[in-house]
């Protein structure tokens, strides 16, 4: 895994856009077809991890990733508070589907960031 393999690098580069597209497709259609935030998020996370396989470079700012993930968590808690608690989902039923998609999107972002952080922390862990 330390030496560079041009086969893996080329194939990963080729698959990159399709993986992104597939991940967002799973997230966006999660409310009425198989999939959802968690599954799509882990597909997107596998993209960052494939990048780690090809190029193990520690050029991510982990602290920023942590903060962004926490921000997504706060948004994830705020959105139901704003939409469900005042009873808006009963008054404006046409907004229910956008609400579900938004929730799935937030979950997907949080999951992908979380899994990426886990793998990168593990991959770049140095003893001592």
């Amino acid at each position: 895994m330390t030496e560079k393999s041009s086969i893996i690098a080329t194939m990963t580069g080729l698959l990159y856009p399709f993986v992104v597209l597939f991940g967002f497709y799973i997230i966006a259609n999660g409310h009425n077809s198989p999939g959802g935030g968690f599954q799509g998020g882990s597909v997107i996370a596998s993209l960052f991890i494939a990048r780690y396989l090809v190029l193990p470079a520690d050029d991510f700012d982990m602290d920023t990733l942590h903060h962004v993930e926490k921000a997504f968590l706060v948004l994830l808690l705020l959105l139901p508070l704003v939409f469900i608690f005042p009873g808006l989902h009963l008054m404006y039923e046409q907004f229910n589907v956008p609400y579900l998609i938004a929730m799935n999107f937030l979950i997907g972002m949080k999951v992908s960031l979380g899994l990426t952080i886990i793998v990168f922390r593990f991959g770049f862990f140095r003893e001592g």
């Binding site: 895994m1 799973i26 198989p34 999939g35 959802g36 968690f38 599954q39 882990s42 597909v43 996370a45 596998s46 991890i49 780690y52 396989l53 899994l115 793998v119 593990f122 991959g123």
Partner: peptide, 22 residues
């Protein structure tokens, strides 16, 4: 199918990679 997607991505993707780096 929901569980299947999660299993495919996590079971054979992320976990295999974690074990490889371990």
């Amino acid at each position: 199918p929901d569980v299947a997607i999660a299993e495919a991505v996590i079971g054979s993707g992320l976990v295999a990679l974690l074990y490889l780096s371990a």
